[in-house]
Amino acid sequence: MRLSHADKVLFPGDGITKADLAAYYESVAGAMVPHTRDRPLNLWRWNAGIGGARIVQQEIPKGAPDWVRRVTVGRRAGGSVCHAMANDAATLVWLANQNAITLHVWTSRADRLDRPDRMIFDLDPPEGVDFAGVRRAALQVGDTLRDLGLEPFAMVTGSKGVHVVAPLRRTADHDRVRASAGAIAEEIAQRAPGELTTHWRKERREGRILVDVARNTYAQTTVAPYAVRARPGAPVATPLAWEELEDPQLRADRWTLRTLPARLDEGGDPWAGLRRAARTLPA
């Protein structure tokens, strides 16, 4: 597919162009598409590069080719919105051509939008917190999920924190999944009250890591695995093998647009078995 203004620099400090972004998404599509297929997308676009204004767009961009898959979703307040879905490599490249640097996905799929297939815990540290604390928190979330019969998967976000994801069978609606995630988060925070909190307001966090479950709400989105973040160096949201949380060298932005393809070439996608690990939400 021909790119428009392929030499446009999107990451000025790194010299990364739109062509580089498109080539990255084409190269990782084999690992990324299984995690984005059939999921409504929110697009985070930077038409003037990451130093310019961010556009957060739900509606599929105008002029989208017919072959880009899409789904129309009713709004709770009335009306509807037509989302694109990244179901193949060509769509990822086309989205890069729209300056969509970062893709965010629903926690449910188009055929059953009311039934999420993953529960997400977003571990969001305040500025200045050692990443070792985030790793410890992720391990604690994993232990709690296993105690409940769920299988945890981890991903560094490419920004500041870690997502811990439990794949689910599609038997419960968003409200129930959100309520269950909230109860689990409260239990986790009570086990380490000096390090973790569920308080949304920053002034009440007192330097602790937020265990955020808001991503589990209907129509909320989460950063897609292998999505590029609009930050210097072009870090990538990178799925982990669980044991990598033990690595003291781990950082949220450890892998980038330039280094992530080699990681996939060497070890493949650590989340390749995520769908097969789906469990029923516990009572």
Rank of each mutant, 00 (worst) to 15 (best):
V93R: 07
Q57E: 09
R39K: 14
T72K: 06
P34W: 05
M85F: 02
T91E: 08
W44E: 11
A48M: 04
P65R: 12
L41G: 12
E59A: 14
P40R: 03
A48P: 02
V33W: 04
P65E: 08
V33T: 00
V68H: 10
A31N: 06
R39D: 10
R39A: 14
T91G: 07
N47F: 11
G79N: 05
Q58L: 11
A84D: 11
R70S: 13
R76T: 03
L41P: 12
K62V: 07
I50M: 13
P61W: 01
I60S: 12
G74M: 04
T91D: 10
Q58D: 13
R69S: 09
C82S: 12
R69Y: 01
T36W: 10
P61F: 01
R76D: 09
N47K: 13
G49N: 00
T72W: 04
R37W: 10
A53E: 15
P34H: 06
R37M: 14
V33E: 00
L43S: 01
D88W: 15
W46R: 13
P40G: 02
N42E: 06
G78D: 05
H35K: 07
V81C: 00
V93H: 03
A90S: 11
S80G: 07
G51S: 05
Q58A: 15
I55T: 15
L92S: 04
G78W: 09
V71N: 07
A31L: 11
P40N: 05
G49K: 02
I55F: 15
G52Y: 15
K62Q: 05
W44S: 09
A84E: 10
I55G: 12
Q57M: 09
A89I: 12
V33C: 00
D88L: 15
R76L: 07
V81G: 00
W94D: 08
L92H: 03
R69D: 00
R45L: 10
R69H: 05
R54S: 13
M85K: 02
A53P: 14
R75D: 00
G78S: 06
K62N: 05
R54H: 14
G63A: 00
I60G: 07
A48D: 13
V73L: 03
A90T: 04
P61E: 05
N42F: 03
G79S: 05
A77I: 04
V71I: 11
G51D: 11
R54M: 15
I50D: 11
P40C: 02
V68L: 08
V81I: 08
T72E: 08
N47Y: 08
M85I: 04
A90H: 01
G49A: 06
M32N: 10
A86N: 02
G79Y: 00
A53L: 14
A31H: 12
V93F: 03
P65L: 08
E59S: 13
A86Q: 07
